[in-house]
């Protein structure tokens, strides 16, 4: 069965639908990031702060992503947890120019990772060190140190610098996530 699946996967016959959760502080670029994956005609020219959540769908290599773009504003972060249970991947977006709030981002990340619905699952976490085009942006390495990413041991994680406006770096991250999801799903089988 496993061999057959893999074969089918390689041949591009098999399709998967996964839910990914897009979280991060407000103004880190979540909605902009997802906007980039939209088809040309449905792209919105203007991104406003999300209230509640937003659902976007996009495709990558036979994987249909249903991305839940959550509101990053402080008072709505408590809503994230309703989606932990049913997601197969997490995208955590960080504003790499906002040094001041790294601690807040770390705090939210820790809360997320310690949540019972997340802690015991080997769920892939993709970090986007967004806004790399901004002059005072920190490098991905520094950010991973600042957030203490090396301490995450039970989950595959990856960090890549990105620019959501131009789409730079996004593809790389999503490629990684796709690969991880295949692995994750196969393992669960």
């Amino acid at each position: 069965m496993g061999i057959f699946d893999k074969l089918a996967g390689l041949l591009g016959l098999r399709r998967r639908e996964v839910n990914v959760l897009v979280v991060g502080l407000d103004n880190s670029g979540k909605s902009t990031l997802l906007n980039h994956f939209k088809s040309e005609e449905s792209k919105s020219s203007e991104i406003v702060p999300t209230i509640g959540f937003n659902v976007e769908k996009f495709q990558n290599k036979n994987v249909g992503f249903t991305a839940f773009d959550m509101s990053g504003q402080g008072r709505y972060r408590s809503l994230w947890e309703h989606y932990y249970r049913d997601c197969q991947g997490i995208i955590f977006v960080i504003d790499s120019s906002d040094k001041l709030r790294f601690v807040v981002a770390k705090d939210e990340l820790d809360t997320l990772l310690q949540h019972p619905d997340i802690a015991n699952r080997r769920i892939p976490v993709l970090f986007f060190a967004n806004k790399m085009d901004v002059k005072e942006a920190m490098s991905a390495v520094k950010i991973s140190a600042a957030l203490g990413l090396d301490r995450i041991s039970n989950k595959p994680w990856h960090i890549c610098a990105s620019n959501a406006i131009t789409g730079e770096g996004l593809q790389e991250g999503v490629e990684w996530l796709t690969g991880q999801i295949w692995e994750y799903v196969d393992r669960r089988r």
């Binding site: 999300t50 209230i51 509640g52 959540f53 937003n54 509101s71 709505y76 408590s78 809503l79 309703h82």
Partner: peptide, 13 residues
């Protein structure tokens, strides 16, 4: 009431 917030973006859309 707290969860109702989640519907806001959909309304807007």
């Amino acid at each position: 009431p707290d969860m109702a917030i989640m519907a806001v973006n959909t309304f807007v859309k």
